[in-house]
Amino acid sequence: MNISRRKFLGGCGLLLGGSSGFISSLLSGSGPVALRPPGAREGKEFLATCIRCGQCVEACPYDSLKLFGLGGGLAMGTPHVEARKVPCYLCTNEDELKCIGACPSGALEPVEDRSKVRMGTAVINHKTCFAFNGVTCRVCWRVCPFQGTALVYDKRMRPTIDPKACVGCGICEEACITEKSSIVVRPANSNEGVG
């Protein structure tokens, strides 16, 4: 090596001091808000553990998972679910959650049961939801895999979400018949009040 030891270490120190603090503050301030695959570790920890190999994307039988591109910023190369396009079907026809089995690094941790998955919580927009505006519509209730626990109908035939039971799979978000979905999953890693 042509560079002297002192220069080498000094340069490293400068680079480190300058930028690691900056990025770490960026990361802790606001982790990228995204609906992560089932079993994903919490926001910043997920970014730290995921090796961006894309094996979960390949394992997903429904093509629900996509990798972030340049637009994902620091989350580039990590998987996420765009529920309005293709939600997570929780591998209902499979023996296990395929993405968790495929993950080599442990960024996706095994879950005991599908009902224990916590990708996020569905939130209903009362202004646009048909049921809240006098038209009976049971689409979200019909498709919910935890019908009756996560999504319940009240006496006036309006859907309500139980944040303790909702897994955040987004099947309701995809199914909602209003032009812009009236039921949207708020990802578990978003900072606004979850649960």
């Binding site: 930028s19 770490s24 990361l27 730290a48 090796i51 961006r52 190369g77």
Partner: peptide, 17 residues
């Protein structure tokens, strides 16, 4: 060395991203 220490101190795999 920078990439590795960045991982350690900032908790972020810089090079993989």
């Amino acid at each position: 060395l920078f990439v590795l220490s960045f991982s350690l101190f900032a908790g972020f795999p810089l090079f993989q991203t």
